[in-house]
Simulated assay, not measured.
Amino acid sequence: MNAPERSAVHRADAAFQEMHGRAPSGVWSAPGRVNLIGEHTDYNDGFVLPFALPHRTAVAASARDDGLLVATTLGDDGKAQHATPIAVSALEPGAVQGWAAYPSGVAWALREQGVHGGADLVIAGDVPAGAGLSSSHALECAVALALLGLAGRAPDGAAGSPALSEIARWVQRSENDFVGAPTGLLDQTASLCCTEAHALFLDVRSGKSEQVLFDAAANGLRVLVIDTRASHSHTDGGYGARRSGCERAAELLGVPALRDVAVAELPEVLPRLPEELRPLVRHVVTEDDRVLRAVDHLRSGRMAEIGPLLTASHTSLRDDYRVSVRELDVAVESALAAGALGARMIGGGFGGSAIALVPEDALTAVEEAVVAGFALESLGTPRLFTAVPSAGAGRDK
Score class of each variant (00 low, 15 high):
Cys193Trp: 09
Thr195Ile: 06
Thr195Asp: 04
Thr195Met: 01
Glu196Gln: 05
Glu196Val: 06
Glu196Met: 03
Ala197Phe: 05
His198Thr: 05
His198Val: 01
His198Arg: 04
Ala199Asp: 05
Ala199Thr: 02
Leu200Gln: 00
Phe201Cys: 10
Leu202Pro: 08
Asp203Glu: 15
Arg205Ala: 15
Ser206Phe: 12
Ser206Arg: 13
Ser206Trp: 11
Gly207Ile: 12
Gly207Met: 13
Lys208Gln: 15
Lys208Pro: 00
Lys208Met: 10
Ser209Gln: 14
Glu210Met: 13
Gln211Asn: 12
Gln211Leu: 11
Gln211Phe: 04
Gln211Ser: 13
Val212Trp: 06
Leu213Trp: 01
Phe214Tyr: 11
Phe214Asn: 06
Asp215Ala: 08
Asp215Ser: 01
Ala216Tyr: 04
Ala217Lys: 12
Ala217Pro: 06
Asn219His: 15
Asn219Gln: 14
Asn219Thr: 09
Leu221Ser: 03
Arg222Glu: 07
Val223Glu: 02
Leu224Phe: 09
Leu224Arg: 08
Leu224Glu: 07
Asp227Tyr: 00
Asp227Phe: 01
Asp227Ile: 00
Thr228Cys: 09
Thr228Ala: 02
Arg229Tyr: 03
Arg229Pro: 03
Arg229Gln: 08
Ser231Glu: 15
Ser231Ile: 13
His232Cys: 13
His232Arg: 15
His232Leu: 15
His232Pro: 14
Ser233Trp: 11
His234Met: 13
Thr235Pro: 01
Asp236Phe: 09
Gly237Val: 12
Gly238His: 15
Tyr239Val: 09
Tyr239Pro: 04
Ala241Asp: 15
Arg242Ser: 09
Arg242Gly: 10
Arg242Tyr: 06
Arg243Lys: 14
Ser244Lys: 14
Ser244Arg: 15
Ser244Gln: 15
Gly245Glu: 11
Cys246Gly: 10
Cys246Leu: 10
Glu247Asp: 13
Glu247Pro: 00
Arg248Tyr: 09
Ala249Ile: 07
Ala250Ile: 10
Glu251Gln: 13
Leu252Pro: 04
Leu252Arg: 01
Gly254Gln: 00
Pro256Gly: 11
Pro256Cys: 12
Pro256Lys: 10
Ala257Gly: 15
Leu258Phe: 08
Asp260Glu: 15
Val261Lys: 02
Val261Met: 07
Ala262Gly: 11
Ala264Glu: 04
Ala264Phe: 02
Ala264Gly: 03
Glu265Met: 06
Glu265Lys: 04
Leu266Gly: 01
Leu266Met: 06
Pro267Glu: 03
Pro267Asp: 04
Pro267Cys: 03
Pro267His: 02
Val269Asn: 03
Val269Ala: 00
Leu270Gln: 05
Pro271Ser: 02
Arg272Asp: 03
Arg272Val: 05
Arg272Gly: 01
Leu273Tyr: 02
Pro274Phe: 00
Pro274Thr: 02
Glu275Met: 10
Pro279Lys: 04
Val281Gln: 01
Arg282Gly: 07
